[in-house]
Amino acid sequence: MDVFLQPGEFFVGGADFRVRTLLGSCVSITLWHPARQIGAMSHFLLARRARASATLDGRYGDDALELMWSGLVAQGVDPRQCVAKVFGGADMFCGLPTSREFHIGRNNGEAARNMLAARGIQVRAEHLFGAGHRQVLFDIKDGDVWVRQVTPTGDAAPEARKRQ
């Protein structure tokens, strides 16, 4: 079955699912347990929210990772035994001068790396930054993630359709 993640959503499921999304400056983290063939994927918009909240919200990276973590634990999976991959974080405003605080994509990608490292999960593969949008497909059966990056000119990047 195919699942399409909208911004702010996450998914946890088994081998019969393929999860897709479309990313610009947003970031997706995939976590996959090879022996159990269970995986999780997020699509977050910002690394963290400005103010703490008691309610988790998948639009924020730290909350999305917590939601995926809880979902995997509920499936009997130790997330620290998962293979992690990270995608997205593109510059959607190419050529416009921006300060460091407005590099949303770069901030999201670096936050994803840091959040995973803080939980003891090594990133096995990543396809981050650059310009344009990415189409991402995560096949939970085998843990493969297919990425196609399209530049603002509409050209597919040389690494288009790369399996991670």
Rank of each mutant, 00 (worst) to 15 (best):
A117V: 07
E66P: 00
L128G: 00
F129V: 11
D142I: 05
A156H: 09
G39I: 07
A84V: 09
D16Y: 10
G89S: 06
G95T: 08
G105Q: 04
K141R: 15
L46I: 03
D155C: 12
G61T: 13
P158T: 09
F10C: 08
R119C: 01
D2A: 13
V27Q: 03
L31C: 01
A50R: 15
A54Q: 14
V150D: 10
L96W: 09
P158I: 05
Q75H: 09
M115L: 15
L5R: 00
W32R: 01
M41W: 01
S25W: 07
S28Q: 13
R134M: 14
Q149H: 10
A160M: 09
H127K: 13
L45Y: 07
A64W: 06
D63K: 00
N107K: 10
R49L: 11
D142G: 04
R119G: 06
A157Y: 15
G76V: 07
T55M: 14
K162S: 09
L23K: 05
A160V: 06
Q164S: 13
L67C: 02
L137A: 15
F4H: 11
L116V: 05
R148A: 14
P34C: 02
T55N: 11
F11N: 05
A112V: 07
L137W: 15
R59I: 09
R49P: 07
D57A: 13
Q37D: 03
R80D: 03
E9S: 14
